[in-house]
Design a protein around this nucleic acid. Structure first.
Lengths: 209, 209
DNA sequence: ATGTATTTGACCAATGTGGTCAAAATATGT
DNA sequence: ACATATTTTGACCACATTGGTCAAATACAT
């Protein structure tokens, strides 16, 4: 299916993947421009359409690629036997930060794809939506007894999620204009936030390894 | 300047404004289509360019219109003598919910404009950015003694902001496909969230009017 | 009925679109 | 060194969309 593309060097593949992920994430399927993708990847028009027969196939490749990358990483590194919410979140955050260093817009791409409306790709999106629900599982079967008494765990989880999301947005917005994200700082700020949220919602003594 | 447009009935003006706000908010200045705006507003091409001499003037009109609407509403209804953070937030949320009923995408438009990159409008955007900083003032000069002891107020404010933002996103995302937003429900969910955040961050007995 | 203001949509040049293809460049095998 | 196969290129295409114009149609006022 993608024999031609897979024959390329890892570097070339990554450059193309990242240029395409960024374009689709920013503009959505319909408004994404193959011209801007080849410009960003610094390859010729002919090459792109030699690797992928058309725009739609490129999009679906990216979709399957992204989901596979994320899901396989989760399977390796997230321990669902761990019932401590924050420990699980840290496992997930680590994945996000590491994957983002290689594919800076992979999560934005998957989120954008999840809400994509273009009829041209609606069908194949629907087929894959189930496997993209890894986010929800993170909060399944959590030990709510670690929360402070009287805390509404459902609300707390929402607040935690929105905060992580907000910090993530802030980081990528701030460094959209600049060249690259400072992952050192991102890690640090995230850790600070998680620390704060733990103190806020967990009983004293819980999960302070 | 906008004499022709201002002569129109309020209804016609609102329909045009909303169609344009939505298009610019969703696509940004460059990718916004005047064709889709006239389609959404159900007016002719000729009319739009009779009211506004070109796309740029339309954009700037919307920008000034939106900022004026929001800022004047804030001046009327936000009491900066009030040092209780949550009371101030409620005042702001009320404004957002009410304005959103008339101009559903006005806040998305202003936020998108704030990050707009098109050179065609960069200059006039820079000129107006200061007046669009009403958001930050909300958190100025707050009574931090109302917070639980030991709580980092700066972090707490961030979490509160991200949560309100997250809920707002959730509401508009969920109802993007449906026709209209249920403001009754939105108000209720926001109130629940604020209640939860108050209990989380404020000392018992504080601000339970 | 006449003049004025508003509204219309067919029309335009310009730009951008996804995709093709013959030729050029490079790699490979002998 | 040569021939063959593979990869890469960018000029080129038909088509769609763009922001904007303008003469004619419509509405309104007197």
């Amino acid at each position: 299916m993608y024999a031609k593309f897979n024959k390329l060097s890892r570097e070339r593949r990554e450059v193309i993947i990242n240029a395409a992920l960024m374009e689709f994430a920013a503009k959505g399927y319909k408004d994404a421009s193959t011209n801007r993708i080849i410009e960003g990847a610094d390859i010729s028009k002919g090459s792109l359409f030699h690797y992928f027969k058309n725009k739609k196939q490129l999009f679906i490749y990216l979709l399957d690629f992204s989901i596979e990358k994320i899901v396989s990483e989760i399977k390796i590194r997230v321990d669902f036997a761990e019932k401590d919410l924050f420990k699980r979140i840290r496992q997930m955050v680590d994945i996000e930060l590491e994957l983002s260093q290689i594919y800076p817009t992979i999560f934005q791409f998957v989120e954008a794809a999840y809400f994509e409306q273009s009829v041209e790709v609606m069908h194949e999106l629907e087929e894959r939506k189930e496997s993209a629900l890894f986010t929800k599982k993170l909060f399944d079967d959590i030990d709510t007894s670690l929360f402070k008494k009287g805390i509404d765990a459902t609300q707390a989880i929402k607040v935690i999620w929105w905060s992580l999301d907000g910090l993530g947005r802030e980081i990528s917005k701030a460094h959209e204009h600049n060249r690259q994200i400072d992952y050192e700082q991102a890690t640090q700020e995230t850790e600070q936030l998680l620390q704060f949220l733990t103190e806020t919602f967990y009983q004293e003594g819980s999960s302070l390894a």
